[in-house]
Design a protein around this nucleic acid. Sequence first.
DNA 1: GACAGCGTGTACTAAGTAGTATACACTACA
DNA 2: TGTAGTGTATACTACTTAGTACACGCTGTC
Lengths: 117, 117
Amino acid sequence: MSSFGSYVRERRERLKASDATFSVRQLAVRIGVEPSFLSKVERGETPPPSEEKVKALAIELGEDPDVLLALAGKVSSDLQEAIRKRPELFAAVIRELKDVPDQAVLRIVREVRDGKW
Amino acid sequence: MSSFGSYVRERRERLKASDATFSVRQLAVRIGVEPSFLSKVERGETPPPSEEKVKALAIELGEDPDVLLALAGKVSSDLQEAIRKRPELFAAVIRELKDVPDQAVLRIVREVRDGKW
DNA sequence: GACAGCGTGTACTAAGTAGTATACACTACA
DNA sequence: TGTAGTGTATACTACTTAGTACACGCTGTC
């Protein structure tokens, strides 16, 4: 059920069509793992790699690191750290916004950025 | 450096002063671990236990589970799941609110709750 | 027909996670 | 003085994480 692997494979194959350096071997070297390991990851034979490697993979594939981490079942450590620094606050925020539609949440974010609070 | 253990120990000792059932042994049984393990955790000889045990501990000690999890270096799995379901959105929210003072964040959350968005 | 490059199968490992089980020494108390 | 309860030391274990190292067979090409 690991959609992470097939997602990466699909994305990589697409890029490989127009750029031969997106072979398993070469991409693996670029993100700092052994080719056989990336191969196993793509086929879901092994769980997704560490946060660091997933982020490197995201950058190579031109994907959003947070999205790829999510597919890997992870949450970026900088987000976790922000939550751990003010656990009550962020727990409240996240649980409150959990079921609020994207549009509404984005409006809030924009207002914060514009200093309208 | 593990503040988690000493924090738990202090809370437990405080409760034990007026309730003898807050011994290492009895509390350990209530949260579902061996007494020797809780002892080691409190002395920082072993890293904090699993999320499940930390939550049980928080409830027994009358503490906020999210706060105790934060001390354990963890983030509640339900929060992680919420983030993983909409990674771009929540990554934006958290990074945007990271340096915003509590007061302001709380006001925003209240406005959301009151449907002022 | 050799050589480069490809994807993958197999075997292995070092470190971390999350504890259990048992025994020991000490204190209170009846 | 025995026994109930306390905290802890020691030894051990099963599972997971996060990979490496190497070899194999296939394909294209020069």
